[in-house]
């Protein structure tokens, strides 16, 4: 989509072009600087940060802050580092992404190829659920998770993320399958394929790109969630974002900025990696989530 060959042919003068390049480069600096500072300061000893210049490269290179952030820093009350919380997040994200994607694919399939009365209204109800302020569901959700015995657990968070992820995953698959020729489904019906056979043999094999888009979107969203994690799983069941916040906000002792930075990068690493590896799909997901058509 965005890598398409440029077709516009606006002529610009020399001075204008200089200005444009300057603006673009300064902007790039603006976007890169905070991350650059986190990175350089995460490999400095603490003294070099408090006593020295944030912008300068490390004089002494050390991986100690990373080790501390990963396995020994004080998170909340325990000196466990972020490691257990990282695995909490993994245990939460993988099933939640998997389930919400499967459900989204089935919903999209039904909503485009087996249409019935009021299906657009039902889809509208699902779609709106993506945009609600989640504060509106916090209180009853906390109650229900308590009643189900899922409060504070990873399973509870999986349930929450599946429920509030369905809207987007359905949106992706619905839009994708809307462009998928209905004649193929009809041909398969005449060939004798039934509902699930058509889905498995005809639709799914052609759904590669949208599965990638959906998985990336759900992964990024669920990994980065803070509100649900903080509300329903603080303590030892907390996900990475909550643990990072606890690490940074902990008021005891000296502020170990280098450890905080290392921790922040650790928390950002999985989504950043996905972005670097599959940025094209990430952008497609963003666009599909905003401009529907």
């Amino acid at each position: 989509m965005m890598s398409a060959a440029q077709t516009q042919s606006v002529r610009t003068g020399h001075v204008t072009r200089m200005f444009i390049y300057l603006f673009l480069l300064l902007s790039a600096l603006f976007y890169l600087l905070p991350f650059f500072i986190m990175l350089t300061n995460s490999v400095k000893p603490l003294g070099e940060i408090t006593g020295g210049n944030m912008m300068s490269l490390p004089e002494v290179f050390t991986l100690e802050p990373w080790k501390a952030a990963w396995s020994s820093a004080q998170v909340g009350v325990e000196p466990t580092g972020l490691r257990p919380y990282f695995w909490n997040s993994i245990r939460m994200v993988v099933p939640a992404v998997f389930i919400s994607t499967i459900l989204g694919a089935l919903n999209g399939y039904v909503l485009t190829k087996w249409r019935f009365r009021f299906d657009t209204i039902l889809f509208g109800l699902m779609l709106f659920s993506c945009f609600i302020p989640f504060q509106i569901v916090l209180i009853p959700m906390a109650r229900i998770l308590g009643i189900l015995g899922l409060a504070g657990s990873t399973y509870g968070l999986i349930l929450v993320h599946v429920v509030y992820g369905i809207g987007f995953s359905t949106l992706y698959f619905r839009n994708y399958y809307a462009a998928f020729p209905t004649e193929l489904v009809r041909a398969a019906q005449i060939d004798g394929a039934r509902f699930f056979q058509i889905f498995r043999r005809i639709m799914l094999p052609s759904s590669g790109p949208i599965i990638v888009v959906c998985v990336i979107w759900q992964f990024t969203n669920i990994w980065n969630d803070f509100l649900f994690g903080a509300s329903f799983a603080s303590g030892s069941g907390a996900p990475m974002t909550v643990a990072l916040n606890n690490l940074v906000q902990s008021s005891t002792g000296v502020k170990e900025y280098n450890v905080h930075f290392a921790g922040a990068i650790l928390a950002a690493l999985p989504t950043l990696l996905v972005y670097i590896v599959a940025g094209r799909y990430f952008v497609r997901g963003l666009m599909a989530g905003s401009v529907k058509g």
């Binding site: 009809r186 004798g192 094999p205």
Partner: peptide, 29 residues
């Protein structure tokens, strides 16, 4: 059900299954 009427249909867009080979398309039914 369409598949039990003993009919076959040729579609305007041909409706060939894009993920299958020609042989698999022909024998899918």
């Amino acid at each position: 059900h369409p598949s039990n009427r003993n009919i076959a249909m040729v579609f305007q867009s041909y409706a060939l299954y894009p993920n299958m080979t020609v042989g698999q398309n022909i024998t899918f039914g």
